[in-house]
Each structure stands twice: as C-alpha cells, then as structure tokens.
C-alpha cells in the first residue's frame, strides 16, 4: 500500500514565516484516489495545499510529492513537479486580462507543441466539460463567481496533470451545480485516473466524492482524523470529528 502513495507527509509542519499553522501531520494520498482535506474555517486547509503545490516550503518533517522531497528539492525538480500538477485556487486566480478560453489555453501554449488551432480546440473542450462553452470569449470579470470557479477548474485540468489540487471548488455554488461538479470530478477520476486533492467542508460533497479524508482542527493545530468518511463517522470517537461529520456545533455536542 505504501508504494502507491503519491503524496506522503511524515510529522510535517506547515505555516508562514516561522509561525506554524498545523504541525504533526501524518498522512498519505494514494495514486488515483480522491482525497479530501476538511476542517473548520481558518484551520489551515489552504496552507496545506500551498505547501503541497510547492509555493510554501514545509516548516518541518518530510513532505514527499511524487517521489520528490519538497524540503530538499532543487529548483529544476520543483519546476518539473509543477508541470505534473494542476491547481485551482480558492480565489479562482484567473488571469484578469485574458478571456476564459485564453486562460485555459495559456498552459497549453507554454508547455505543448500543439498548433494554435489544436490548442484552441483542446481549451474549448475543457471549457465544454465544465459547461462554459457559451462563455469562452468572456473575460473573468464578465462571468459569475461560480462560473469563474468552473473556468479555474478547467484551467487546472488543461494539461491533464496526473494530480489536481482544488481549493473549495464547490463553495458558493448552488446544490445542483455543486452536485454536477462532483460528478465531473468522479468521472475525470475514473476516466483519466487523475488523483484529486480537494479542499472542502461541504458534507454532501465529501460524501459523494471522498475516497479518504483528513480532518484538521484549528484549536489543536493538527490533523485529528484520517480515513474514509463512512469509517470515520462509524468508528471515530473523537468528539470534534463527530461534530464535524454530523454537522453539530461543538457546544451543542458538549451538551447532549
């Protein structure tokens, strides 16, 4: 089992400028699974993701991504890694001066030998997958927040990277679009074998897509549970995990 881990954290600490946000992280993501990072607002989910996508050096312990130790990697190794990951940021982070189509096409322009018409065709196909064919020529500022998120996912998937990181892809989407989104992730996962690391705290979404998940806690500054959602709900006795998975507030959980 250990051999097919694509991401491994051993006693890792993550944070900004000497100030750890989460410590003692021990978990691995297996190749081909949909791994969910969950936890309350501000607990450090995005910080874990920033570390995994090589933008933030780990503060301690070991973080292995696709066989590379992020703390020791050389600049070239990091650059090579970055071409093997697709990222969707919480804020969308589309390039404001480019249309949705150009946004999706940009990584293709830079990293593939495809001709321009072929690049455009591929980019259009990606946009079609997320249901944005009709809006391809619009600027990010001309579409809704949910549409920006979908375009950002399309861009993250543009290069068919083997690992995709999505930070809260369904936050702020209506339940129907959100469910469609989950379907999309599931089908890409089974079709292309893409490994997904998804940050989310939407329970319905977690129930639909997560192979396994990690729950982080802001107060204890570490991961409090790792495993399949159902397994955690049935077996984990940690009150905070139960509170999270059963949508209760902690003070409510304390009373009953």
């Amino acid at each position: 089992m250990a051999t097919d881990a694509i991401i491994t954290l051993k006693d890792a600490a993550v944070g900004y400028g000497g100030e750890p946000v989460l410590t003692g992280l021990n978990f691995s993501v297996r190749r081909g699974e949909i791994f969910v990072v969950a936890g309350g607002s501000g607990c450090g989910k995005s910080t874990i993701m920033r570390t995994l996508i090589t933008l933030l050096p780990p503060m301690g312990g070991q973080v292995m991504l696709d066989g590379v130790d992020l703390a020791r990697a050389t600049g070239d190794e990091i650059n090579a890694l970055r071409r093997r990951i697709g990222v969707m940021y919480q804020s969308g982070a589309l390039f404001g001066g480019l249309t949705l189509l150009e946004n999706v096409r940009l990584p293709l322009e830079e990293f593939t030998a495809l001709s321009t018409p072929a690049q455009t065709a591929v980019a259009r196909a990606k946009l079609a997958v997320v249901g944005l064919s009709a809006d391809a020529e619009k600027l990010p500022s001309e579409v809704s927040g949910g549409m920006q998120k979908r375009a950002a996912v399309a861009r993250a998937l543009a290069l068919d990277a083997p690992i995709a990181f999505l930070d809260e892809p369904t936050a702020g989407l209506d339940p129907v679009t959100s469910a469609e989104f989950d379907e999309l992730i599931l089908s890409l996962n089974s079709l292309l074998g893409t490994t997904f690391v998804v940050v989310t705290h939407e329970l319905p979404s977690i129930e639909r897509i997560a192979t396994r998940m990690v729950i982080c806690d802001r107060r204890r500054k570490t991961a409090v549970a790792i495993g399949a959602p159902r397994e955690l709900r049935e077996q984990c006795t940690d009150p905070e995990v139960q509170a999270f998975l059963n949508r209760r507030s902690m003070s409510g959980a304390g009373q009953s």
């Binding site: 996508i53 933008l55 970055r82 982070a93 390039f95 404001g96």
Partner: peptide, 17 residues
Amino acid sequence: GTMTVTNEIDALRTFGL
C-alpha cells in the same frame, strides 16, 4: 499587486511560468 493578492502570480508559478 492585484495579481499577487488574487493568487494570479501563484497560478503563474505553479504553471511553471
């Protein structure tokens, strides 16, 4: 600066650009 704040610079970096 706006691109930094909205993570667009990060996005460029993770594209290897």
